[in-house]
Nucleic acid binder design. Structure first.
Lengths: 357, 357
DNA sequence: TTGTATGCGTTATCAG
DNA sequence: CTGATAACGCATACAA
């Protein structure tokens, strides 16, 4: 019953072909096979081909666990990233993955739904899996996390974070981004400014964004209207609801800044629903985590944030550490203000094409 | 120079504490330590505590490679997912990860930027890493992929796919979703219908979506306007451009269906830019991969697709296989039409609150 | 260039 | 309940 090949093969039967199998088929030793596969230049053309043929014939796939055990390295780095779905993290992670892949490293990812809950447990699992390095999100983690990292001598980096005594951080100047937005609004003559932002309590990035905003405003003798400041989870619905609340309070406002593009999209939707003229009677600006703020309607001013670049830099940093090289110095990550008019090429419905006369 | 503890510790020095260290500190054998950690009930209270204390004191973390080698299983499943960033995949993956985590499984993820390119290589890497099972996206893969999977006797599942002789598929009824949209538009009396969809050539899902649309239309004696049908990459900019092209062609249209919400967002933006009254003079409907179509402006009719559910079901299926149980039967995944009015609660700017009188 | 033998850190088997 | 000891599959120093 359980000997049929195509049966539900749980654990017991998983003895797949090994180096030894290949070796005997090729009529050489295991050592030779191993070298033929990982150091082709150390072996004669003839035997190498025999080995490769045997490998092919058997469909041999190396056992990573054994290899890792013998080599004391796994060629993989772990990343623990909370609340993964629907955010800008995928972009960052993919950049990280791509950068690591250039040097043959694989990314082992954990994306726990509930934050903090068991970050240490997750990290432990990763170390047990044998990751050579670790990428963390932000820099606020329990002491145990850093302790375990240090104890295991595993290189690590904190992404989307500013500075930390605990280790290296890759991030961008969030206050500078806030300043860009504030300057823009101020230049438009706006003075009564509201804010719909992320929850600062458990989100270091939202916190820095918020404080950057406050400081930029202060430099111009302005401040956030307290009754027009709302903290909420990042999300369309949340943005919609928050803007609804703001409107309900009937505060006089010149402009509203949104903590990210999800909030902005929801807020714009609520404004439209309420018949508010944007930007005629109210300007909206936004941080652009997810690269779609430039395409929202009505067009709004936004700052493009170097999310992808964080992933890349983090990857480079880790690779440097892994190769026992001093970390490469890295310049500041680029931040760019995108003004509201840059939605795309104009299309005139009355004339047909755009380019022709 | 290289003996300092806090130096760039590449590979050589990574001999961290092992079971043996713990054993000698606790004055027991390695076997005892192993059991104390993984089978607490097989050991006396007293020694277990001694062991745990030693573990704590040394900050011991198990070596997963060695464990995997000995146990012949890694408690992890791999997933290979192309074009990961900015799509609805994160949602699906997170659901998969969460489901697997319930049983202690870890998700090893590969998210290659370029599709097909080297799917086999990626799979090989995963198998080498020692994954116990694999989740694939869609069902169109090179033969080698299935061959390798079969050869290694690794349970696997195809997500977001319909049917395949190669193995199990988890997906939803894409044509049914298309039919919902078509029925809705037809009920509104629309007959001249266009489509801005994903590239069918290299995207099985886009293909099924497109064909489902054609059939649903045919059942009602309708067809897609050829000159109002555009294939493009999923994306805001692409949707914007595509709608621009459509407008440029000056085709008479009652409605346009968008292949996903990114395209829809771009299309709506282009329509607004062109001053087209939506839905007054043109209806827009959309497949909703990313859960934000319901929040777009102007509100459009959309079908909510069970993306998250795919991840969950795939996880359950894999777990069943991993535990050597027959796969659990699963009902059809839910699809829901969301009509354009359901953007959210209404907000009356003139009255303050919504709920009070 | 190739074969041999040892070690990698755990789990599992089998006595005690 | 606990202690030896043999796998696990591969890489590598060493010998040939």
């Amino acid at each position: 019953m359980s000997s049929s090949p195509n049966r539900f093969s749980g654990l017991p039967a998983k003895r797949s072909t090994s180096l030894a199998d290949v070796a005997s088929l090729a009529g050489v030793s295991t050592g030779t096979v191993s070298r033929a596969l990982t150091r082709p230049d150390m072996i004669s053309e003839a035997t190498r081909e025999r080995v490769l043929a045997a490998v092919e014939r058997l469909g041999y796939v190396a056992n990573g666990a054994a290899r890792a055990l013998a080599m004391r390295r796994t060629m993989s780095v772990g990343a623990v990233v909370p609340r993964f779905g629907g955010s800008s993290f995928p972009t960052m992670i993919q950049a990280l993955e791509a950068t690591l892949a250039e040097q043959g490293y694989t990314l082992l990812l954990a994306a726990p739904e509930h934050r903090q809950s068991n970050e240490l447990a997750i990290l432990r699992t990763m170390l047990e899996r044998g990751v050579d390095a670790v990428a963390l999100l932000s820099s606020d983690h329990p002491r145990d996390v850093f302790a375990m990292l240090g104890n295991s001598r595993t290189p690590f980096v904190m992404m989307w974070a500013q500075e930390s005594v605990e280790g290296a951080c890759i991030g961008f100047d969030e206050p500078a981004a806030a300043a860009l937005l504030v300057d823009h609004l101020a230049e438009l003559g706006h003075r009564r400014i509201g804010f719909i932002g992320g929850l600062t309590a458990d989100n270091e990035r939202a916190r820095r964004r918020f404080q950057g905003l406050l400081r930029a405003l202060a430099r111009r003798g302005l401040e956030l209207l307290e009754e027009a400041t709302i903290e909420t989870d990042y999300g369309f619905q949340q943005g919609f609801d928050a803007m609804g609340m703001l409107l309900g309070r009937r505060v006089k406002l010149d402009a509203v800044v949104c903590g990210n593009d999800y909030l902005a999209a929801g807020a714009l939707s609520a404004l439209d629903r309420a018949g508010v003229d944007v930007p005629g009677s109210l300007s909206v600006a936004s941080f652009n985590d997810n690269d779609f703020a430039p395409f929202l309607h009505p067009p709004l001013t936004t700052v493009r944030l170097p999310i992808r670049e964080i992933g890349e830099q983090a990857g480079r940093y880790l690779l440097a550490r892994l190769h026992d090289r001093p970390p490469v110095p890295m310049g500041p990550l680029p931040i760019e203000l995108i003004r509201r008019s840059s939605t795309g090429p104009k299309v005139d419905i009355n004339r047909g094409r755009t380019s022709a006369a």
